[in-house]
């Protein structure tokens, strides 16, 4: 994946010099290890800031909403699906975009590394298959496969769905992945156990809304959690309010979520918020045969009606 950097810079520089785009959205090295940050490059001489490694988990589609400029964007599999979703929802036009497709091999789970590493992380170096973490005089080596984000280990769309240029050959997609093992386990337990599970899961939530802000789907001018007339959800730390927030956040992503993992990555408390969005994703797949962001022409299940929509819950 590291070899992508030169190619990304080269394409971005070309685009900017030709004036094909006004800016390129990509990643630059973050101020902390494991946390690359998004950046907007507007001048050809700045393209050397662009990087690519296994810490680019943030979803760049988030920065496209309602933009008017012509944009070059670096997109891995999930980003590209979110870009498609943005196009479907008229948040950006396909003609504005020049998509630099990046076949992805998965991003590293920063929460996992932080939990596993005994000291403060000072430096992270990676090669094709391993990452070396150093800090506080300690050095530890993991193979990348061990510390991937959970959504990346079960990812079945690593290659971008839409792109104008590719930085490398497409990677082999993972086959026969059991994407919903954990969801089925929760579905199988009793209502009381489910309540305990979710109370426990969400108990550490501090209502910072980082999951919402990181999510490319959450672009409403006024989010329901900020609305005060009417106030849909209390602003307290009451477990019910927290539960309502997470429930609705997930539900607003129904049929739109690509399981990019940005929410979970952003969570400062390490809450596995994807448990909720993934359930909806599973239902969309099973009930409506729907996968988000695969086709610009198709509309999401909650936006369409068909006489054969499942309706066995209605009497």
């Amino acid at each position: 994946m590291l070899t992508y950097i030169d190619k990304i810079r080269q394409i971005a520089e070309g685009f900017l010099k030709e004036g094909t785009v006004d800016m390129v959205i990509g990643f630059r090295r973050g101020t902390l290890p494991l946390m690359n940050e998004p950046c907007l490059i507007k001048r050809p001489e700045d393209v050397k800031k662009l990087v690519w490694d296994s810490n680019c988990g943030i979803n760049l589609a988030n920065y496209l909403t309602n933009r008017k400029e012509k944009i070059g964007i670096v997109a891995k599999g999930c980003d590209s699906r979110n870009i498609v979703n943005h196009i479907i929802e008229n948040k950006i036009k396909r003609e504005q975009l020049f998509i630099i497709g990046v076949p992805c091999k998965g991003m590293i789970d920063r929460h996992a590394i932080e939990a596993l590493f005994p000291s403060e992380i000072e430096e992270v170096v990676e090669d094709e298959s391993r990452i070396v973490v150093t800090g506080g005089g300690v050095e530890q080596i993991w193979s990348k496969a061990e510390v991937l984000q959970e959504n990346c280990t079960i990812c079945i769309h690593r290659n971008p769905v839409v792109y104008d240029e590719l930085v490398a050959d497409l990677v082999v997609e993972q086959k026969d992945v059991d994407r919903y093992e954990d969801i089925r386990r929760i579905e199988g337990i009793s209502p009381e156990e489910k309540r305990d599970y979710f109370n426990d899961l969400l108990s550490s939530c501090i209502r910072c809304y980082a999951c919402r802000n990181a999510c490319p789907l959450c672009y409403c001018p006024t989010c329901f959690v900020d609305a005060s007339r009417p106030q849909w959800v209390g602003k307290s730390q009451d477990p019910t309010d927290i539960e309502t927030f997470h429930f609705l956040r997930a539900f607003h992503c129904a049929g739109r979520c690509t399981d990019c993992g940005a929410c979970e990555r952003a969570c400062p408390m390490g809450i596995k918020v994807r448990v909720l969005t993934k359930k909806l994703e599973k239902d969309c797949l099973e009930l409506f045969d729907w996968e988000t962001g695969m086709d610009v022409e198709k509309r999401a299940p909650l936006r369409t009606y068909s006489p054969d929509d499942p309706d066995d819950m209605i009497r």
């Binding site: 929760i186 579905e187 209502p191 009381e192 156990e193 489910k194 309540r195 599970y197 979710f198 539960e243 429930f247 997930a250 539900f251 129904a254 049929g255 909720l276 359930k279 909806l280 239902d283 969309c284 009930l287 299940p301 909650l302 929509d309 499942p310 309706d311 819950m313 209605i314 009497r315």
Partner: peptide
């Protein structure tokens, strides 16, 4: 449908939420 599934997934007993067409 999705809503009912999700709320039951979060621990509401099936049978508390009803839908009908009359």
């Amino acid at each position: 449908m999705l809503f009912k599934n999700l709320i039951e997934y979060m621990g509401l007993e099936p049978g508390r939420l009803h839908f009908s067409w009359i």
